[in-house]
Amino acid sequence: MRAPLAVAIVGVAVLAAAILVETAPSDAQEQHGAFPVALTEGERGDGRNLAVRVADPRLADVVVLDGWRGTTTGEWLVLDATAAARSSDALLVTTLRIGELSFAGLDSGEADTLESTLLEPGLPWRGALLFELPADAAALPGADHATLRAALSSDPRLDSVLELEIDLTTLPHDAQVLVPSLERTTW
């Protein structure tokens, strides 16, 4: 009886090992990628240490924010956003993915965007998110389902990332957009 029992135990162990190997994450993205949290336009989304609400995306040739006038050879994607940290002070980092291309949100010290402001727990700021894009960005492959990603680090692995899908092909395009100043707000 002992031999069949040993064979059965080994068989079960091998089967368990095979299941483990087959189901365990195999690539780097699955092993230590970020945890995406889907956002809906105009509604608050919560990640581990970040709460964000994004609304009113539009395109513009020129952006005016306080005393700063943003010109570009391309065009701007402008979004109104509200953001706060949830557990500790942090800086917001945003990227926009259009097909294979990735665009960094403007974090210039000259323009007071939401991305240039220290976020504190429970104290939301309302301001603008700005992306400098090539001219006619709506014609880029994948522009109909671009993805805005908001995180607290350029390296958000094993942390949450809030994601909003944007259809650039349907956005209004203005010659100039006057962006409201950064201000304290409430949810």
């Binding site: 010109t71 570009t72 050879t73 391309g74 291309l101 990735s102 665009f103 960094a104 403007l106 974090d107 210039s108 010290g109 000259e110 323009a111 992306f131 400098e132 894009l133 090539p134």
Partner: peptide, 15 residues
Amino acid sequence: REGDRASWINPLVET
């Protein structure tokens, strides 16, 4: 950079 100091230049935007 246009009198500014941007940290990044995005793809395909002549800067």
